[in-house]
Amino acid sequence: MSVLTIALTKGRLAKKTLALLEQCGIRCDEMYTDTRKLIFEDPDAQIRFFLAKADDVPTYVEYGAADLGVVGKDVLLEKQKDLFEVLDLKFGICRMAVAGFPEGKDLLRSGADFRVATKYPEIARQHFLKHHQMPEILKLSGSIELAPIVGLADVIVDIVETGNTLRDNGLEVLDTVCPVSARLVVNKASMKIRHEEISRLIRAIGSQLEK
């Protein structure tokens, strides 16, 4: 049988995922070396990994270029891809929140028109629709906190971990959208065709998490 391919989200999530997999007996020394290689293999466990940008991980998995992937719930909610979400890995924990200056609270309640800056336009749209609001949504690519400070937007929708960046800039969390953590996702076709290997892996990871 051919190897299983796993797409990992570059950065902290990848490190935590590798640590978790190591507890399950899957180790890939190559990944810890400073190399320009894009694909890494663990020949014993018949698994190979590659690193991708968070936004791209669901696409790799949806199209079957990777059988499995590890990515944040925020990206999954935003991308709405057609794949199976099988495990909450309980790391990379943070929350999606609406944030802004303290006055923003009244603005959100007032029913007045307002403007939202975010990296997650779909999540923002869905959240405000639930509250019967249809603000103008601007998609930005980074440093979202800047938007209310320079007057580009009234509030932001973004990931909040400690809230330090917000506080340092006089901003605060106005409303929580949803909790976020890393998830294990599986390609739908792989789940059927390579059912035995994949469920064995899921069970192994799942029982590590319960410890």
Partner: peptide, 11 residues
Amino acid sequence: FKGYALGAAEP
């Protein structure tokens, strides 16, 4: 029912 073939991401 849904049939999946290795190499096709969709049924």
